[in-house]
Amino acid sequence: MDSQENVMVINAYAAFEPGGQFEHFSYDPGEIGPHEVEIEVRSCGVCHSDLSMWQNEWGIAEYPFVGGHEIAGVVASVGNLVENVKAGDKVGLGWQKGYCNTCNQCLGGDHNLCTEQQGTIIGHFGGFAERVRAQDTSVIKIPESFDLNLVGPLLCGGITVFNPLIQYEIKPTSRVAVIGIGGLGHLALQFARAWGCEVTALTSKSKMDEARHLGAHHCLDSRNPEEIAGAQGHFDLVISTVNVAMDWNALVATLKPKGRLHFVGIVEKPLEVAALPMIMQQNSISGSPVGSPATLNTMMEFAARHDIRPVTESFKFEEINQAFEHLESGKARYRIVLVR
């Protein structure tokens, strides 16, 4: 074990029922495992997925619930077989805290698709705490140029919209549209612009100026059918970050031949899409979750090189209940971060 000892009690904030107030909570993490890393949490994003888990919208939350999966901090201690990080390193941890490391997905580098993956806040205590533990594979180093108070949202929201650029080999010459300029969309605009793409924001008129500031070359009113129809056959990739139903057939019609409509926002209603136009244009509909540790590392390097940063609002950890009220109100612009 590293010379710095791991703590035997971790102090955190937990909700004891769906939607309940976060209160002080302590737990014993036990002895650190040989491949575990203990992170001293300096900041932690509050993602909409934390809200969904807190309210048990997906029916998988366990209580007491300690959320927080956009974690930035420094390594406090490591297990005796950990080699990728050491005490004092600036590190991050996202939605997944561990993998089996032996399945075909893991061996092929697609750890984020591992069927035995461990969610940081699913059946485990997350980063709304002084410290958190995770498997070494899931812990990534943070470039020195990054302010730890800004890193968190990249580890979930950022990787969610960056991953499709890698997975589908998007070219700098591609035309990319982003639906929804919120917690995910405002990062998607920045990544796609820095990637070299021609970027279009599909958003409300009230957000168009900000969308251009974030990287959009063009803006279309997502509520205006005529403007959407005017983009027929234009895009190589349309990334949907929203959780509401839209006219998906009209959006498929904006794709070039072999173009792709890709979902990273969770739309609860089944998609209604006509097959024939997709067949004739060889279009695709797809979705993806976060990204592998390797892709996370690539994203962090790319974000550091191109100065990509989330737009955040900060609350102190002890203001966690106010932070959740602000997120639930829908007024967050665009990501909330708890800081010390």
Results as ranks from 00 to 15, higher is better:
Ala72Phe: 12
Leu155Glu: 00
Ser222Asp: 08
Val7Pro: 05
Trp248Phe: 15
Val75Glu: 02
Gln105Thr: 14
Glu38Met: 14
Trp95Met: 07
Gly215Met: 03
Glu23Pro: 01
Trp95Phe: 11
Ile181Pro: 01
Ala231Tyr: 01
Asn84Glu: 13
Gln117Val: 11
Met246Val: 08
Arg175Ala: 11
Glu17Ser: 14
Val290Pro: 05
Glu31Asn: 14
Arg335Tyr: 06
Asp236Gln: 02
Phe302Lys: 14
Glu130Cys: 02
Glu144Ala: 14
Cys219Met: 07
Phe65Glu: 03
Gly196Pro: 15
Ala294Tyr: 10
Leu338Met: 13
Val78Arg: 00
Glu319Met: 01
Glu144Pro: 11
Arg212Gln: 13
Thr137Asn: 10
Gly73Gln: 04
His48Ala: 04
Val264Asp: 00
Ala76Met: 06
Leu220Gly: 00
Ile170Thr: 13
Arg175Tyr: 06
Val85Thr: 13
Ile60Thr: 15
Ile336Asp: 00
Tyr99Trp: 11
Asp28Tyr: 09
Phe235Gly: 00
Trp54Tyr: 07
Arg212Ala: 00
Leu327Val: 07
Ile228Ala: 01
Asp307Phe: 10
Phe235Leu: 00
Gly67Ala: 09
Met208Ile: 10
Glu40Asp: 12
His217Cys: 06
Ser138Leu: 02
Tyr27Ala: 06
Ile179Asn: 07
Pro277Ile: 03
Leu220Asn: 01
Glu272Lys: 14
Glu5Thr: 15
Val337Met: 06
Thr115Ser: 09
Gln282Cys: 08
Asp307Ala: 15
Glu268Phe: 05
Gln190Glu: 08
Val311Cys: 06
Phe16Trp: 08
Gln117Tyr: 10
Ala274Pro: 09
Gly157Pro: 15
Ile228Gly: 00
His35Trp: 09
